[in-house]
Computed example of a mutant assay.
Amino acid sequence: MSEERMDVAGLAGELRVALGQLMRRLREQAEGSDLTKSQTSVLLRLERDGAATATALARAEGMRPQSMAKIIYALEEEGLVSGSPDPKDGRKTLLSLTEAAREQFRTGRRAREDWLAKVIEAGLSDEEIRHLAATTELLRRLAQSP
């Protein structure tokens, strides 16, 4: 393996660790969420992709329909998801986010972004902030790679 490749491999490892640490810190900023990872994943999918049936959600999340039913029940009990008849097939129920869920997303995102902005402003020089801005675009490109 060439020295250049070893540097890229090392950089990849360091980047993975640093991004993981940052993501953990950002998650800490979301106050009081008692949701499981699976519940959060379903909410994020509904936010991103829009209304869906429980079957479609189970397939998209790679889980059994029975497991998805438990997640949906818990989210409905929390008032975060509601169902309505599918206009294409009245036998099916389309699940979507409630306004309470949307507000929880907005509030959580604001808290995380406020924390991150304060940390950036307090901990980085103007030059470092410019480097971070340029790096953000590179990270976005990496995230969109196949």
Rank of each mutant, 00 (worst) to 15 (best):
R91N: 08
E99C: 02
L97G: 07
V8R: 14
A12I: 08
A143N: 01
S33I: 05
A122L: 11
L132E: 01
L132F: 13
A122T: 11
R64Q: 03
L124D: 03
E99P: 03
E113G: 00
A12F: 12
D89S: 09
R110D: 09
S41T: 02
F105G: 05
M23H: 08
E76M: 12
R110M: 14
L75N: 04
E121C: 05
A51N: 03
K88W: 14
L43C: 06
A60F: 04
R27G: 07
G20T: 14
R27I: 03
R106D: 15
L44T: 02
D86T: 07
L124M: 15
A122C: 03
L97S: 03
R102V: 06
G108L: 05
L26G: 00
A56K: 07
L80G: 02
S38N: 07
Q21I: 14
L22H: 09
G20C: 04
S96L: 06
G32S: 13
A30D: 12
L57V: 01
T36K: 07
P146L: 09
R112V: 10
F105V: 05
T136K: 11
S145V: 02
A18K: 13
A51C: 09
E4V: 15
E113F: 11
S82Y: 15
K37D: 01
A111K: 07
A74Y: 02
A69Y: 05
A12R: 12
L116R: 03
V8N: 05
L22E: 12
L46V: 01
L46W: 14
P146A: 08
V17R: 15
D86Q: 08
A58N: 00
L57W: 10
Q144I: 01
G123S: 15
D89N: 14
E121K: 11
A52K: 02
K92L: 13
D49G: 00
E78A: 15
D7H: 11
A9P: 02
E137L: 10
A117N: 10
G90W: 11
L57I: 04
G13K: 09
R141E: 06
A30Y: 06
D114P: 01
R140W: 03
K88L: 14
I72L: 12
L75F: 06
W115C: 05
E113V: 06
V42E: 03
E78P: 00
V8F: 15
Q104T: 07
L97F: 07
D86F: 14
E128G: 08
R16S: 09
G62E: 02
L139Y: 04
R102N: 06
R24P: 01
A58C: 03
E99S: 04
R110V: 09
L95N: 04
E76F: 08
E78Q: 15
S38D: 11
D89M: 09
R64M: 05
A9N: 06
K118G: 11
D7P: 00
R64N: 05
K92N: 10
P85N: 11
I72W: 02
A9Y: 13
